[in-house]
Design a protein around this nucleic acid. Structure first.
Lengths: 194, 194
DNA sequence: CCTACCGATCGGTAGG
DNA sequence: CCTACCGATCGGTAGG
């Protein structure tokens, strides 16, 4: 079920699920049409091209991500609580789809294929890093981390921590991975704390 | 040019380059045959199935990785020099292929597709994390990091740092990314140092 | 290692 | 939103 309430959103929700499982490029009109119980060309009429379908899935995912990960974190008190919330929300997001986070998957898939999709991903990732940076700035104002913190560096290290967790959890199946992430996050917060 | 000197290795080298660019699944016999100036079925005869081709490419990449990343690092003095070498070598490895590190790409691609390829990737990643852990243990013996270091945690955090760099470098194009990685590595070493 | 071929599916179009 | 279709390509096979 899509979180937006029209037919196209239902298609995009299913497309997002399939793209997360198969990858954005391996998703086909034929398979998506079968899932939606539509004809292939009926589906095609909604999107005009495969690239357009892929872009619309990324935009839909972006709205979904804002709703599930970013907005709830921004409702938490700034500083440590908000930092912990954004990590927790991201982890929940990644585990919501069988194939993991579509942005991570699409980034590895399109990193050397210049075009509209790579550009869109770049915009989205920049916004994400910006959110992390602003969460760092808010933590300074809250007095939770050092006032001279380089918040770009803060964002980079926080994102690295999340990605490391994500890889371990996806493949290596380390039973202690939750504790490792917690320990790394605590160390990270201690390093930056006031 | 392949680093091993038979016909099949030449095919695997080209297959690795193409798989790194396109992804393991999007690589096809038809395209690889065209690149090798062979007939499709002539190429097919070497591998019997697509899955087999994919597995052989991963094994070839693994031998290549050992030669380019792991062995040279193990020749460095244990402790800090070896830790810095493994990070540097990994970074060079990732930038050697237009599409980046095939293991990272294939992991995101196959994380939710159980089968021989996922199992092979799991084996390979476990070996990689083992190498990082042993580099941590050697650093304890060298007196460079704290004797009570949890070397599994050490490996997790070092891998996270590398992955964060990798993502930034691939997509975000932060001009300061080299400094950020250096700063994060220094902080990491300081955190664990004796 | 080749030619010649298989059924299935691809992205996309014509026409309604 | 549909049926019917296009040329191209897919993984794989037969037979040599």
């Amino acid at each position: 079920m899509a979180f937006e309430k029209d037919k196209k959103s239902d298609i995009l929700q299913k497309g997002l699920e399939m793209a997360s499982h198969l990858s954005l490029e391996a998703l086909t009109f034929g398979e998506l049409a079968k899932e939606m119980k539509m004809s292939k060309s009926g589906l095609f009429a909604h999107f005009q091209s495969k690239e357009n379908l892929q872009l619309e899935i990324l935009d839909y995912a972006s709205r979904y991500f804002a709703r599930e990960v970013i907005l709830p974190a921004l409702k938490e008190e700034r500083g440590i609580p908000r930092i912990r919330a954004i990590v927790d929300n991201w982890v929940s997001w990644g585990s919501k789809f069988s194939g993991g986070c579509i942005f991570v998957a699409a980034t590895t898939e399109f990193n050397d294929r210049p075009g509209k999709i790579k550009s869109r991903l770049l915009d989205q990732q920049k916004k994400w890093v910006d959110v992390l940076r602003r969460i760092g700035e808010a933590a300074i104002k809250a007095g939770d981390i050092k006032p001279d913190t380089d918040c770009e560096q803060f964002a980079f290290e926080l994102y690295s921590l999340i990605l490391g967790y994500y890889y371990y959890d996806q493949l290596i199946e380390d039973p202690k991975i939750e504790q490792r992430r917690e320990k790394a996050l605590n160390q990270f917060l201690k390093e930056y704390s006031n």
